[in-house]
């Protein structure tokens, strides 16, 4: 059934020689990470021809270890990027003229996970311990968390897996609520064996996935940015409306990328993404001024960002949204 559907879809959406090149604008979206349900909306929009419908011949470039999405955007290898707000702000501060054209996730999903059996039950217990932190900008929310709790930890670079934590190489590990936390459960740890620190708690909500483009690109082709955002949000709405179809699409992309593809795990991820993207059951797609100011203020306070751009110059007005 699914196979025939996919075949039909492919036949319907395969670019005809006449259409290729004419009318469709080529564009590339670089993801923050390897294919997974975190990016279900974009894969669904691509697979179901929503980008084509909006006049875009989109290529999705998976991110991953050693492939920072911001670099791809900054040096023009991609026209659009999925970036965390903190990363984007720092890049903007470092002179990359990127602009938030849509804020997909409204709530932070980042957590720190520790074993209760290692004696870690509250934030203070993390002091002086080996903690796995993702490289670069992804460590910002965790570092802000330690800063706010006045903790010094021994940071250990964290790889793409949670195996170091599982083998006991670190006392605590970075984890996304929608991803690594569930991987730990699927590696046999029970929820009641884990202490979970939600980094958004304590009024520091650093919204994560947003869509970014370079200022000059938007200036050159504002319609493309508008169409891209519209198609992307439509893709997300479709993904939430039919999660099973979305999972089929995502799992296919994962198998093509030869990475572990587990339906139960991706179902968990898609459901958690919906909580982050539609916290009140409604998708805004817009970065709120309050969140922006809180995050910018925090980055300035911790000295990571010297000068924050104004909200108006960092965020493209939501006129582009349907």
């Amino acid at each position: 059934m699914t196979r025939w559907f996919a075949l039909g879809l492919w036949l319907a959406l395969a670019p005809s020689p006449a259409m290729a090149g004419e009318g469709l604008r080529k564009a590339a979206l670089v993801l923050l990470w390897t294919p997974q349900a975190q990016f279900a909306g974009y894969y669904v929009a691509l697979e179901k021809g929503i980008y084509r419908k909006h006049g875009i011949d989109l290529a999705i470039v998976p991110g991953g270890p050693g492939r920072p999405a911001a670099d791809y955007l900054g040096d023009g290898r991609a026209d659009f990027a999925v970036l965390w707000l903190s990363t984007a702000l720092l890049r903007r501060g470092a002179g990359v003229p990127l602009v938030n054209i849509a804020q997909i996730a409204q709530r932070s999903s980042m957590v720190l996970v520790a074993r209760k059996s290692a004696g870690i039950r509250m934030a203070a217990d993390l002091g002086g311990q080996k903690v796995g932190l993702w490289g670069g900008d992804l460590a910002i929310p965790a570092r802000a968390f330690f800063d706010r709790h006045g903790l010094t930890v021994e940071a250990v670079p964290q790889s793409a897996t949670v195996n170091l934590f599982l083998r006991g190489g670190v006392k605590a590990a970075s984890a996304m609520w929608y991803n690594e936390y569930h991987l730990l459960l699927n590696a046999g740890l029970d929820p009641d064996e884990l202490t979970v620190f939600r980094l958004e708690e304590g009024s520091l909500n650093i919204p994560e996935d947003g869509l970014y483009a370079l200022e000059k690109d938007i200036g050159r082709d504002p319609d493309l940015a508008d169409a891209f955002v519209r198609a992307s949000l439509e893709g997300w709405n479709d993904a939430f409306a039919d999660p099973q179809e979305a999972l089929d699409i995502v799992l296919r992309a994962m198998r093509e990328a030869k990475i572990p593809a587990n339906r139960v795990h991706q179902a968990w991820m898609l459901a958690r993404m919906e909580e982050a993207i539609r916290p009140a059951g409604r998708m805004t797609g817009v970065l709120s001024k309050e969140d922006y100011q809180a995050v910018a203020g925090e980055l300035q306070r911790t000295g990571l960002l010297r000068e924050a751009p104004s909200y108006g110059s960092f965020v493209r007005p939501p006129r582009a949204h349907p």
Binding site: V156, S159, L164, R167, G169, V170
Partner: peptide
């Protein structure tokens, strides 16, 4: 992992 885990442990 094949490098980091034995390094840490």
């Amino acid at each position: 992992d094949w490098y980091q885990i034995p390094r840490e442990l």
